[in-house]
Amino acid sequence: MASEADRSQDEVAELVGKLVTPEETDGAERRRLLGRLSRVLVDSAKKAKVAGPERGRWLADVFMNIAPRLPIRDAATLQRHHYGLTGEQLADDLVRTAAKGTMAVGAVGGALAAAQFAAPPLLLSAPAQLVAETLVVAAIEVKLLAELHEVYGVQVPGNGTQRATAFAVAWARQRGVNPLAPGSATLAIGAAAKTALRNRLMRTLGRHFTTLGPFFTGAVAGGTFNRVATRKLAQAVRADLRTRALPPA
Rank of each mutant, 00 (worst) to 15 (best):
3 S>F: 07
10 D>I: 10
14 E>G: 08
15 L>K: 00
17 G>W: 02
23 E>F: 08
23 E>T: 01
26 D>I: 01
28 A>G: 08
37 L>F: 11
38 S>M: 02
40 V>A: 13
41 L>E: 00
43 D>K: 11
45 A>V: 01
47 K>N: 14
49 K>E: 11
54 E>M: 07
65 N>T: 13
68 P>E: 07
70 L>R: 00
71 P>D: 04
73 R>G: 07
74 D>T: 06
74 D>L: 05
74 D>H: 06
77 T>E: 10
78 L>Y: 05
79 Q>M: 15
80 R>E: 11
82 H>W: 14
82 H>N: 09
84 G>W: 06
84 G>Q: 00
93 D>M: 15
95 V>W: 13
98 A>F: 13
100 K>G: 13
107 A>D: 13
108 V>G: 11
112 L>D: 07
117 F>Q: 08
118 A>G: 09
119 A>H: 14
121 P>L: 13
121 P>C: 13
128 A>V: 01
129 Q>A: 12
132 A>R: 03
134 T>Y: 04
135 L>Y: 06
138 A>D: 08
140 I>W: 03
145 L>Y: 10
146 A>L: 01
146 A>R: 02
147 E>Y: 10
147 E>H: 08
147 E>L: 05
150 E>P: 00
157 P>S: 03
158 G>D: 00
160 G>T: 10
166 A>S: 02
167 F>M: 03
167 F>D: 03
169 V>N: 01
171 W>K: 05
172 A>H: 01
175 R>N: 07
178 N>Q: 06
180 L>E: 14
182 P>A: 11
184 S>A: 07
185 A>T: 12
186 T>F: 07
187 L>V: 10
187 L>S: 03
190 G>D: 12
191 A>M: 08
192 A>W: 07
193 A>Q: 02
194 K>L: 15
194 K>G: 15
195 T>E: 15
195 T>M: 15
195 T>D: 15
196 A>W: 03
204 T>F: 05
205 L>R: 03
210 T>V: 12
211 T>F: 05
212 L>N: 02
216 F>E: 04
221 A>E: 08
222 G>K: 00
225 F>V: 12
227 R>H: 12
230 T>Y: 14
232 K>W: 12
232 K>C: 10
233 L>Y: 15
235 Q>D: 09
237 V>H: 01
237 V>S: 00
238 R>F: 12
242 R>H: 04
246 L>T: 04
246 L>P: 08
248 P>S: 04
